[in-house]
Computed example of a mutant assay.
Amino acid sequence: MEDILEEDLTLPPCKYEYLDHTADVQLHAWGDSLPEAFEQCGIAMYGYMTTLSTVEIKEVREIEATGHDLESLLYHFLDELLFLFSCEPFLICSKVVITEFITEGEDFRIKCKCYGEEFTLGKHPQGTEVKAITYSAMQIISEPEHNKFQVFVIIDI
Rank of each mutant, 00 (worst) to 15 (best):
I102S: 08
Y115P: 12
F77R: 06
S94T: 03
K113L: 15
I63W: 06
L91G: 14
I110H: 01
G105P: 02
H68T: 15
I102P: 10
E100M: 10
L121G: 05
L73C: 10
D107Y: 13
L121W: 12
V55R: 05
F101Q: 05
L78I: 09
E88N: 12
E56G: 14
T66F: 06
G67T: 02
C93F: 15
L78P: 00
K111P: 12
F85Y: 01
S72I: 05
K123T: 11
I102M: 10
I98Y: 07
G122V: 11
K111I: 04
G116M: 09
E106S: 15
K95Q: 11
V55H: 00
D69P: 04
H76K: 06
I92T: 01
K111M: 14
T120A: 14
I57M: 13
G116N: 03
L73W: 05
T120K: 15
D107C: 14
D69V: 04
I92R: 03
E71A: 13
G116Q: 09
L70S: 06
F85N: 00
E62W: 00
F83K: 05
E88A: 13
F77L: 08
A65C: 07
L73V: 09
T54D: 04
V97M: 12
D107P: 06
V55D: 04
H68V: 15
S86T: 15
E56C: 06
T66P: 00
Y75D: 08
V60Y: 07
P89A: 08
E100K: 03
K95M: 12
L121R: 10
L81V: 14
E106A: 14
D79L: 07
K95A: 13
I57G: 07
D107N: 11
T54E: 00
T103W: 11
H76G: 00
K95G: 04
G105L: 01
L78A: 10
E117P: 00
L82K: 03
L78S: 13
D69R: 08
K95H: 12
H76Q: 06
C93H: 04
E88F: 13
E118C: 12
E56L: 08
E71P: 13
E100R: 12
V60D: 12
C112L: 09
K123W: 09
T120E: 05
E100Q: 12
I92L: 13
E106V: 11
E106Y: 14
I57T: 02
C112V: 10
S72Q: 15
E64H: 11
S86D: 15
R61K: 14
V55S: 01
K113S: 11
I63A: 06
F90G: 14
E104P: 02
